[in-house]
Nucleic acid binder design. Structure first.
Length: 119
DNA sequence: TTAGTGACCAACT
DNA sequence: AAGTTGGCCACTA
């Protein structure tokens, strides 16, 4: 039986954080990466999402880029599935842009006010 | 093995 | 103000 490389742990951590995102809220690649101690590895978080596609328990639709843009929608089956999933949770999306983005944005360290997060 | 790429972000010019 | 470049980690060719 093979042992999983430690580096793969990073992906698992990303998945764990993503699963913590409540319904009706969204988070960003950068925020997650920062929380995991890899502030400049936002791309890795997106890559983790790509690999997470095999795990339906991961709400990848709740992860958007720092602008609130659904950059990853193109990777979902269908054309507007990501947007539809978000709207189904009460998140309004217009033209691939999350409305009230700052208000529904959720950080792993949620005890901090959103507007004071530098990022 | 080296090199290139990716659902991004921030710094620098 | 806008365009370019570097960087991070894992995966594929």
């Amino acid at each position: 039986m093979k042992h999983q490389p430690q580096t793969l742990n990073f992906f698992q951590q990303v998945y764990t954080v993503v699963r913590q995102i409540p319904e009706g809220r969204v988070s960003t690649y950068g925020a997650i990466g920062r929380y995991l101690g890899a502030p400049q590895s936002a791309r890795m978080v997106g890559w983790a999402m790509n690999a997470a596609h095999q795990d339906p328990s991961i709400p990848a639709q709740r992860v958007v880029n720092r602008s609130g843009l659904l950059t990853g929608k193109h990777h979902f089956p269908g054309s507007q599935l990501m947007q539809q999933l978000l709207e189904n949770e009460g998140v309004k999306v217009l033209n691939d842009q999350v409305q009230n983005f700052k208000e529904i944005l959720w950080y792993p360290s949620e005890h901090l006010p959103l507007w004071e997060n530098p990022l």
